Simulated scan of single mutants.
Amino acid sequence: MNRLFVMMAVLLAGMSAYAQSEKRIYTKAERKSAEERKFQKRMETVMDSINYADAVKALEELDFVLEADRLVFKRGETAFVTSNTNFISLSDDNAVVQIAPFNGGGPNGVGGITVEGRASNIKMKTDKKGNITFSMSVMGAGISATVDLSLPKGTNRASVTVNPNLNSNRITLGGYLLPKERSSVFKGTSF
């Protein structure tokens, strides 16, 4: 009796699984579109890896520009800005910080301020996951600040926080880290 009951249960379970199966069938256009999306995703991953390697090399050679497209102010306010007039650059020990949230005017002629200084105490660390932190002190006529850069692994999208030593008006710039020769920034008049 038990054997008959077990056989009936197995038979019913198999029939119910078969009766309830449903399969989505895709058209040729849908399959082609899915393949194109997969290919595009792989290409983006490859480009991100190349851009990350270029960014790391630029950091190591102390010859980079972070072109910022977003500013985050001390109290969390955010401004979207043009990347060719908002940047931080470093060439050997010459650092430039330009913040221009307005469309012209200002002390630098492009809508904000431009300060230059000498970079020192430069440090670069890579964690176990491959994320990079880069820090430096910048001293000059119009700037005395600590600059901290964060570059996540696999992309050249980075953020830089400028912490002034004399006040608490920190600002964070978010954008793309590039080797200086690939950058297209416009530097205004500095202090």
Results as ranks from 00 to 15, higher is better:
G175P: 03
A119F: 07
G106M: 15
N94F: 07
T126H: 03
V160R: 00
G76A: 08
N131P: 02
A158F: 07
N131S: 07
L177Q: 09
L173Y: 07
N84R: 11
L178Y: 13
N167H: 06
K180W: 14
V96F: 09
S150R: 06
K128Y: 14
A95T: 03
A100D: 06
N167P: 04
V81N: 04
I113H: 14
I132T: 11
K129H: 15
K128A: 11
T133I: 14
L151H: 09
G112M: 04
R75L: 09
V147K: 15
T146W: 07
D92Y: 10
A141I: 15
F87M: 02
S135G: 10
V81I: 08
N108I: 03
T82I: 06
I132R: 03
S168D: 11
S120I: 09
M139Y: 12
N167S: 04
I122T: 01
L166I: 12
A79M: 15
V81L: 05
G142A: 00
K74P: 05
V110Q: 09
T78L: 03
G104H: 12
F134N: 00
R170D: 14
G130P: 06
V110G: 04
A100C: 15
L166A: 13
P152Y: 08
A95H: 09
G175C: 08
I113W: 08
T78E: 15
G142K: 09
I132W: 00
